[in-house]
């Protein structure tokens, strides 16, 4: 049944209100399960310290993985693509304009011919 809050695409229905209700119910169930467990955690004790295979914990600032180190595998995996795309972004103004002229020229040919 399509409710007043449903978004219809002609092919399917999306009802965010039902979705939100389902999430809330899920969260409540998760909270009930969590709160019925045994609380053995004590803040500020040995339990709170990270275990690094017996090594000393490095300073906090050094354990944070910085943005430059994230998704290295992704960019490395499609290195060939980036080697072609990144150099196009030259930062040179005349190149910016050249691209506009190229697009206008190609468009003109397409529109006139097709």
């Amino acid at each position: 049944m399509v409710s007043a809050t449903s978004l219809t695409s002609g092919f399917g229905i999306w009802d965010p209100v039902l979705w939100v209700l389902a999430i809330i119910i899920g969260l409540v169930i998760a909270w009930i399960l969590w709160s019925s467990g045994v609380s053995a955690f004590k803040k500020g004790t040995e339990q709170a310290r990270p275990y690094l295979s017996g090594n000393a914990e490095p300073p906090k600032g050094e354990v944070h993985i910085r943005a430059g180190n994230l998704y290295w595998g992704f960019t490395e995996g499609i290195k060939g693509y980036y080697q072609r795309i990144v150099p196009l972004h030259t930062g040179i103004m005349t190149d910016y304009l050249l691209w506009m002229f190229w697009v206008a020229g190609i468009l003109l040919i397409i529109v006139m011919v097709v």
Partner: peptide
């Protein structure tokens, strides 16, 4: 047709469509 091509090129560049998007990150 020529007028439309000019309009499309101009406004597509202004809205940052590839390959006329280079100004956008700057």
């Amino acid at each position: 047709k020529l007028a439309l091509v000019l309009v499309v090129a101009a406004l597509a560049a202004k809205c940052g469509a590839v390959p006329m998007h280079f100004w956008t990150p700057d």
